[in-house]
Design a protein around this nucleic acid. Structure first.
Lengths: 119, 119
DNA sequence: CTTGAATCTGACACTGGCGTCAACTTTTAC
DNA sequence: GTAAAAGTTGACGCCAGTGTCAGATTCAAG
């Protein structure tokens, strides 16, 4: 599959896909002419990348993390080393805080919405 | 209270506080010389602003939303108009999606952390 | 072979909240 | 009155993911 199709079926722009490659998050074989050729597994991988971006992880963290995750591709899964684990633990704590904050903000919005429309 | 003290007791930089004012999120009386003078209620308000920023709302949305929220200041609470309510409903849906995504990402991290340290 | 669609690389811009520096003024303390 | 501390405005920069454009090349189809 080439970049246009991957873009279409993940909803991620071609620009972003090239950026992911540049950041070491996504690889592709090349045709003799230099065009990128993706496997089916790329679709899942792109979705996962987006998910991690959405969780506020930066490219370099994602790059280190991805090889440790089971892939729909049959790639061997590398266990995370100690350093990475401690980084991920920090990230997890940050995500937990984010979730709590979001739940509080959601409640705030709810109050305002209810006050205006409910009664 | 002046800007330095407000910054200290909210943990928000002076730069940010001035920015909030510029964006219409925070107001202050001025001394004859032009220095900002904040009431006690500003502390709560700043915290709330940070919370809403953390939830991914942009300045303009927050500016419209704040007058509709009960304030520790005795300011009258304006009910949200129809347009704002629909905007807030959209934001709320976005926040809900974010929470779900974060929970999924958290689970991913958990799996990797566990796989490396647990066994 | 030709043509049009798709892709390539590289460069520049934007967003938006905030850091940071400069030059100046006000306030506070002695 | 003088100096230090705190405040003022304005401008520029950063981050990091992405949009977008230019100019060249490759691929697929007739």
């Amino acid at each position: 599959m080439r970049i246009g199709e991957l873009a279409r079926c993940t909803g991620v722009s071609e620009r972003s896909l090239r950026y992911y490659e540049q950041e070491g998050l996504l690889s592709a074989r090349r045709t003799p002419g230099g065009h990128r050729e993706y496997t089916e597994a790329a679709v899942d991988r792109v979705r996962r990348i987006q998910e991690l971006y959405a969780a506020g992880l930066c490219s370099s963290k994602i790059a280190k993390l991805l090889p440790c995750m089971r892939d729909s591709d049959g790639r061997p899964t590398v266990p995370a080393d100690e350093c990475l684990v401690s980084e991920l633990t920090v990230e997890r704590a940050r995500i937990d805080r984010m979730i709590r904050d979001l739940q509080r903000s959601r409640a705030l919005l709810d109050t305002v919405i209810e006050a205006a429309s409910g009664r």
